[in-house]
Design a protein around this nucleic acid. Structure first.
Lengths: 177, 177
DNA sequence: CTTTTCCGTATCGACCCGATACTAATGGGC
DNA sequence: GCCCATTAGTATCGGGTCGATACGGAAAAG
């Protein structure tokens, strides 16, 4: 994966960290599309990330705009150019292809086991959680298409619950510790 | 994992690529402990890897010595200091701990599915194979403890067949293409 | 209104990385 | 044995990443 990321970025003379940033921004929800969140996600300092974003902005791959309520924070999103670059690189497509000969049932089991391992790993290292909104313990289903974040009190659309959130909290499994 | 690698290396003021190099060298078999193999494994140029190895040598984490038969090639191995550093960082232990609540059966199934996906991914990208000797199609079992590489014609010990080889070739599954 | 805290930026030095050019050793063809 | 192509590794240079530090502006605390 490391080699593949390097190769894909090299075609556009982008460093791995640039692609990782774009990938993150393409999947970050409304609470997580800030420089600070990206810094935590990548494990880099905010100063370093600030430079990365400067470069991505110069290249026209992202857009930056102020937050309405807190004018200190900067909101980030992919520009059309950034979207299309990511679409052509298709970093996730390689994995979908790689699993073409594996039965859906085995994939489901493997994904389930990996998700569990990831949660434990995150707890062990006390790192930022960063999970998919839909799997968060705060996520409530109001109706077929409407969800709600119990932590922030906002209503969320179905697609938004499939994005990455920085305030994710894993659902408790039957852990009778 | 990326964040964790950065954190573990930061404690010793080592870059992620340094730890990855040490980890690789701790697992490379006799055909794969050269700068060239490391460069292919990491997806970097040999010039870059040469510098990395220079730094690791200055720090006393690796040892370099000439090959007996081909005096162009440099053989690499971890120094005692490198071994102990890797032991204390325990990059693989974190994953073992993370799977402590998962049944061995689920782990086996997940590993099997992931190995299959990895092989397909490597074939798709025509990248260097780099697999564990024991799973290679050239690996022959001569007795309980003695193995043999059909490609190179050498006899191998049991522990050596659990190391990473650069000339790995995946065993064919029932792929009636 | 002052102080503290927080988000993001700017600058500097150390280092990674690829490109290029180079040395040294091997191997093939004659 | 002698050229030439090939291969393993190194040296150098420029662009860029990264952390540390300092800074400016906005929000929160008192």
């Amino acid at each position: 994966m490391r080699t593949e990321l390097r190769r894909a970025g090299g075609d556009e003379s982008l460093q791995p960290v640039h692609l990782q940033s774009l990938i993150y921004l393409s999947k970050a929800n409304r609470y997580s599309n800030t420089p600070q969140a990206l810094a935590e996600y990548l494990g880099l300092t905010k100063g370093t990330v600030s430079q990365t974003l400067l470069l991505l902005d110069r290249r026209g791959l992202i857009e930056r705009f102020e937050d309405d309520v807190d004018r200190r924070v900067v909101r980030l999103r992919l520009s059309p150019a950034g979207e299309s670059l990511l679409y052509e690189a298709q970093p996730t497509l390689a994995w979908q292809n790689a699993t073409r000969n594996i039965s859906p049932n085995r994939i489901r089991n493997a994904v389930s086991a990996l998700r569990e391992a990831l949660t434990t790993l995150q707890e062990d290292n006390e790192g930022a959680p960063f999970g998919v909104c839909h799997n968060c313990s705060w996520c409530q289903k109001l109706s077929q298409r409407i969800f709600r974040c119990g932590r922030m009190g906002d209503r969320l659309s179905g697609p938004e619950t499939r994005k990455i959130c920085r305030i994710f909290e894993a659902k408790k499994t039957e852990e009778a510790a």
